[in-house]
Design a protein around this nucleic acid. Structure first.
Length: 569
DNA sequence: TAAATTGGCGCC
DNA sequence: AAAGGGCGCCAATTTA
C-alpha cells in the first residue's frame, strides 16, 4: 500500500533510486536515471519519497512541475532524533549521522547559509561536505527507523518526523509561490507614514520632524534612536528612567514622550520594512521569504531574512490578492490554551476547550465570575510563567479549577529548573541546559512504548546541581512555555500537512502562501474560497485528532475571505 | 577590524 | 495593569 522509494540527486542532476521495505532496506538494486524530475514523475505510485534533504531535492522538482505527496527528510529526522536523545548540539547532517554509525570522525555541520534576498538559486546548491554515497544514505535511513522505534513514543516520534518533513514540502512550495505583494501599495503606506525620502539615504521627512520635536522638548539635540542618549536627556530633565521601553516612557509626564514614542514606532517600520526591504524582498508582485520549518527549538518556524513573521499590521495593506482571486486568512482561535487542554487532559479545561466559542469567555464563566480579561491573563500567566502582577493573583483560581492543566506546566517548569529535558506532545525535545555536561552520553532512560504519563514528559538531561537560582528559574519559564508552544507547533505542522493534502486532492488552484505560528493564508480564485474555508476547518480538526487522538478539544478558526490581508479581523 | 552582545520593538 | 515564553531585524556598543 505504501510504497517508499529513496532518491538522491547525482552530480549530473540525475537521480539514484531504490524501492524500500518497511525497515528501510532496498528491495531491488538501485538504479540511476539521467533526469531527477523525470525519475520522480514516472513513478506516481510512490507514496513517500525518502531523501537526504528537502531543501536540496524539492525545489528542483517544483521547478520541473513535479510536486510530491509525502517525503521523509533524513536530515530533519536526524535533528529530531538527536534532540530526543538529548544530543541536540551534535552535527545533524546525513554525513554526520553516517559517520556516527561507523564510529568514525564526525564532520561538523556547514555554517548556516546567510539569507540572500530574492535568490532562489541558493536553494539548489548542495552544501559542500554533506554529500553521501547512496548506500550510506540508506543505512542512515534504516538506522533512523530503528531509533524512532527505540524512543519512548515510537508512533508519535514517527508522526513528528513525517509532519516536519511535510513542513519542508510546504515551505519549499511557499518559497516558490510567494506572498502576493503590491509594491505600489507598500510605497503608498510608507509615504503616508514616513513622508518623503530625502536623497542621500537619511531619515524620511516625518522622522526628521519627530526627531526635531524631541530635541525641542529637551532643549538640546537628542538622537531618539539612541537609548543611552535618551536616558541621559531625561536625567538632565530630572527624570530617572531605567530604560527607554515604550511602556516605561508612557508613564512619564514630559513633552518629549509623545514624539519619542511615535518616532520609535515609525523608525522601526522604516528600518525593518521600509523602502530597502521592499527593494530586497519583493520581486514580480511576490514577497518570497525563505521559511525554515523547525527553525526554533520549540518547533516554530523562522524565516531566513525578510522578517516574514513580523510584518507590521500597517504594512499588511500591501498584501493584495490577484485580480479575481482572494486571500483566505485563517487564524486558529486560542490555540495554546486548547493545546494545553489536550496535552494535560485536564477535565475542566477540556470541557472549556470543547466548544468553538471564545475560550476565555467560557473560562471566565467557569472560574472568574465572567471576567474574561482576568481569565485570559491568568491562563497566559500560567503558560508563560509570570512571576508577578495580576496573572499571579489569578493563578490560584486557575489552579483550583484546572489542577491538572496547571500541574502540567508546573511540572515542566520544575523539570527545567532541575536541568531535565522536556518534550512536546509528539516528542520534540528541549535543548540541554547550558553547561549541563554536553557531549557524549546523555543517559536518557528509555522505558515503555506509547501513551502519556500524566505530567509533561521529562527526561534526565544531566543536571548539574548547585546552579544560580535565577538561571534555573529562567530555564523553568522556558521549559514551562516549551511544552505548550512546542505542542502547538506540533499541531500546526499537522494542520499544514492536512491542508496541503486536501488542496491537492481537490485539484484546486489554491496555494498556501503564508504561515505564521497559528495563522495561514491561502491565495485562491474567488470561486474556490468557500471550499478552502471548509478545507481549513477540516484540516484543523484532523490535525487535532491526529496529534492528540480521541479528545473533546476543538480547534476552530476565525476565517476571513478578503482582497487584502489588512481587511482580515 | 570583525564578531558578539545589547537595547528596542515588530510579530505570535 | 504589568512586562512571563518564542523569534528576527537594526543600529550602536563592546569584546576578541
Amino acid at each position: 500500500m505504501t510504497e517508499r522509494w529513496a532518491v538522491a540527486v547525482t552530480e549530473s542532476g540525475g537521480a539514484r533510486l531504490a524501492p524500500l521495505d518497511r525497515t528501510g532496506r532496498p528491495t531491488a538494486p538501485a538504479v540511476t536515471e539521467p533526469d531527477l524530475a523525470e525519475a520522480v514523475r514516472s513513478r506516481p505510485g510512490v507514496t513517500r519519497w525518502v531523501w537526504r534533504s528537502s531543501a536540496e531535492v524539492y525545489p528542483r522538482l517544483l521547478a520541473a512541475g513535479v510536486p510530491v505527496a509525502r517525503c521523509y527528510d533524513i536530515e530533519v529526522a536526524e535533528s529530531l532524533l538527536l534532540g530526543h536523545e538529548g544530543r541536540l548540539g551534535e552535527p545533524r547532517s546525513a554525513a554526520a549521522a553516517h559517520a556516527r554509525l561507523l564510529r568514525g570522525p564526525v564532520p561538523p555541520d556547514p555554517p548556516p547559509r546567510s539569507a540572500v534576498p530574492g535568490s532562489q538559486s541558493s536553494l539548489f546548491e548542495p552544501q559542500s561536505g554533506t554529500e553521501l554515497p547512496f548506500d550510506a544514505l540508506l543505512q542512515v535511513y534504516a538506522d533512523q527507523l530503528a531509533r524512532h522505534d527505540a524512543t519512548d513514543r515510537p508512533g508519535r516520534m514517527s508522526l513528528l518526523t513525517a509532519a516536519e518533513s511535510a513542513g519542508m514540502l510546504v515551505a519549499a512550495e511557499m518559497n516558490r509561490s510567494g506572498l502576493p505583494w503590491r509594491a505600489d501599495v507598500h510605497r503608498e503606506v510608507l509615504h503616508e507614514l514616513l513622508g518623503e525620502r530625502y536623497a542621500g539615504g537619511g531619515e524620511p521627512r516625518k522622522l526628521a520632524e519627530l526627531a526635531d520635536e524631541v530635541s525641542a522638548a529637551f532643549g538640546r539635540r537628542v538622537r531618539p534612536d539612541l537609548p543611552a542618549d535618551v536616558v541621559k536627556a531625561f536625567a538632565q530633565a530630572g527624570i530617572k528612567v531605567r530604560s527607554t521601553r515604550r511602556w516605561e516612557l508612557e508613564e512619564l509626564d514630559h513633552p518629549a514622550v509623545r514624539p519619542l514614542v511615535q518616532y520609535k514606532k515609525l523608525y522601526r517600520i522604516w528600518t525593518a520594512h521600509g523602502w530597502s526591504w521592499l527593494q530586497d524582498w519583493v520581486r514580480d508582485g511576490r514577497f518570497r521569504p525563505e521559511y525554515q520549518p523547525g527553525g526554533t527549538v520549540s518547533g516554530r518556524w523562522t524565516t531566513n531574512g525578510g522578517g516574514a513573521l513580523q510584518i507590521p499590521k500597517v504594512i499588511r495593506r500591501a498584501v493584495v490578492a490577484d485580480e479575481g482571486w482572494r486571500l483566505v486568512v485563517a487564524d486558529a482561535d486560542q490555540m495554546e490554551p486548547r493545546v494545553l487542554a489536550a496535552i494535560s487532559r485536564d477535565r475542566g479545561l477540556m470541557e472549556v476547550a470543547g466548544h468553538d466559542g471564545d475560550l476565555y469567555t467560557a473560562l471566565s464563566d467557569r472560574a472568574f465570575h465572567g471576567d474574561r480579561d482576568h481569565a485570559k491573563i491568568a491562563l497566559l500567566g500560567a503558560v508563560y510563567g509570570q512571576t508577578s502582577g495580576d496573572g499571579l493573583k489569578n493563578l490560584a483560581a486557575l489552579r483550583r479549577r484546572f489542577p491538572h492543566a496547571v500541574a502540567y506546566v508546573d511540572d515542566a517548569a520544575k523539570a527545567g529548573e532541575e536541568g531535565r529535558l522536556v518534550r512536546t506532545w509528539l516528542g520534540r525535545t528541549s535543548p540541554p541546559a547550558a553547561g549541563s555536561g554536553d557531549d557524549g552520553e546523555a543517559g536518557i532512560p528509555q522505558e515503555s512504548d506509547e501513551p502519556p504519563p500524566d505530567g509533561p514528559e521529562a527526561a534526565d538531561g544531566g543536571f548539574t546541581p548547585g546552579y544560580a537560582s535565577s538561571n534555573a528559574r529562567a530555564r523553568g519559564r522556558f521549559t514551562r512555555n516549551f511544552v505548550v508552544q512546542g505542542s502547538a507547533a506540533d499541531w500546526a505542522l499537522l494542520l499544514l500537512a492536512a491542508l496541503r493534502q486536501s488542496i491537492a486532492a481537490a485539484g484546486l488552484r489554491a496555494e498556501l502562501v503564508f504561515f505564521q505560528h497559528d495563522e495561514v493564508i491561502v491565495h485562491c480564485p474567488l470561486e474556490e474560497a468557500g471550499t478552502v474555508v471548509e478545507a481549513i476547518r477540516a484540516a484543523g480538526e484532523l490535525a487535532g485528532r491526529t496529534a492528540f487522538g480521541d479528545t473533546p478539544v476543538r480547534f476552530p478558526f476565525t476565517t476571513a475571505v478578503v482582497e487584502r490581508y489588512s481587511d482580515a479581523k
